[in-house]
């Protein structure tokens, strides 16, 4: 089970959890399962997020692997100037 870290302001979308454990093996599965299990977060996920997987920030790549011991952090979508 991968541990997904949830930040302060997002916690109320995840029933108050700061970590949720999910059985997912890539980013696509994560983005599908999160709103299924926590419907409150669906608008945020649909708006677009970046996900940090083992320290690398991933914007789109669905097939980025998530291992059981991966560090996963859901972040606002990263842009630049």
């Amino acid at each position: 089970m991968a541990k997904i870290q949830i930040f302060g302001s997002l916690r109320d979308l995840f029933s108050g959890h700061d970590v949720v454990e999910l059985d997912v093996s890539n980013l696509r599965q994560l983005l599908i399962k999160l709103p299924q299990l926590y419907p409150e977060c669906a608008p945020e996920i649909a708006e677009g997020v970046s996900v940090s997987i083992d320290g690398k920030i991933i914007n789109d790549a669905w097939f980025t692997p998530i291992r059981p011991d991966s560090e996963v952090v859901v972040l606002p979508r990263i842009v630049g100037g």
Binding site: F7, K56, I57, E71, V73
Partner: peptide, 15 residues
């Protein structure tokens, strides 16, 4: 100073 392996202020662990 943050290093590789430090948990960053915004969440992910730095490479």
């Amino acid at each position: 100073a943050a290093k590789g392996g430090t948990k960053s202020s915004y969440g992910p662990t730095f490479e």
